[in-house]
Simulated assay, not measured.
Amino acid sequence: MAKETGRKLIASNKKARHDYHIEDTYEAGIVLQGTEVKSLRAGRASLVDGFADIENGEIYLHAVHIPTYAEGTWTNHPPRRRRKLLLHREEIDKIEGKVREKGYTLVPLQLYFVDGRAKVELGLAKGKKTWDKRHAIAERTAKRETEIAIGRRAKGMG
Rank of each mutant, 00 (worst) to 15 (best):
A63T: 06
H88D: 12
L32V: 10
K129A: 12
D132A: 11
L61G: 07
R83N: 13
R81N: 03
K129G: 10
N56Y: 00
N13E: 04
R117M: 04
L109G: 05
E145R: 08
R100W: 11
Q110M: 07
G72C: 11
G6I: 05
H21L: 13
E58F: 00
G158V: 09
L122M: 09
P79I: 02
N76S: 12
K3H: 01
A142K: 15
S46A: 12
H65K: 14
I148Y: 14
A118G: 03
E121T: 10
I10W: 00
H62P: 01
R82H: 15
G123R: 00
K14S: 08
R100C: 14
A70S: 15
I54N: 00
A28E: 01
F113G: 03
S46H: 13
Q110D: 03
A42L: 11
R134N: 08
W131T: 13
Q33Y: 03
I30A: 13
E139S: 10
K94S: 09
Y69W: 09
R7P: 02
T146C: 03
Y26N: 01
T68D: 10
G127T: 07
K8E: 04
K8Q: 05
P78E: 10
I54R: 00
A70M: 14
H62I: 06
K84W: 10
A142I: 15
K14L: 08
Y20N: 11
G6E: 06
T35A: 15
G116V: 04
H135S: 13
I137S: 14
D115H: 01
Q33E: 08
R140H: 13
G97A: 12
V37Y: 02
E96M: 08
A125M: 07
I150H: 14
V31D: 04
E121K: 14
Y112A: 04
A125Y: 01
K126L: 07
Y60H: 14
V37R: 03
T75C: 07
S39G: 09
A149P: 12
P79Y: 01
K14N: 10
A28V: 06
Q110N: 14
R17W: 07
V64H: 03
K155T: 14
L85N: 08
V64K: 03
M1S: 06
P79W: 03
L61H: 05
V99K: 07
E91A: 11
Y26K: 02
L86H: 02
I137K: 15
E96K: 09
A138I: 13
Y20H: 10
G43T: 04
H21D: 11
A118V: 10
L122R: 04
M1R: 02
I95F: 01
I22V: 12
I148N: 13
Y112F: 15
L87V: 11
Y104W: 14
F113Q: 00
G116T: 01
V48P: 00
K98H: 04
A70L: 11
N76Q: 15
T105C: 13
R83L: 11
R44P: 07
Y20S: 02
E27R: 11
L32D: 05
A63F: 08
R152I: 09
T73R: 09
I92P: 06
K102I: 12
E27T: 15
Y112I: 05
R152C: 12
F113P: 07
Q110W: 06
G158A: 09
I10S: 01
W74K: 12
T68K: 15
E145Y: 08
A16V: 04
P67Y: 01
E101V: 04
A149Y: 09
I150M: 09
E58N: 00
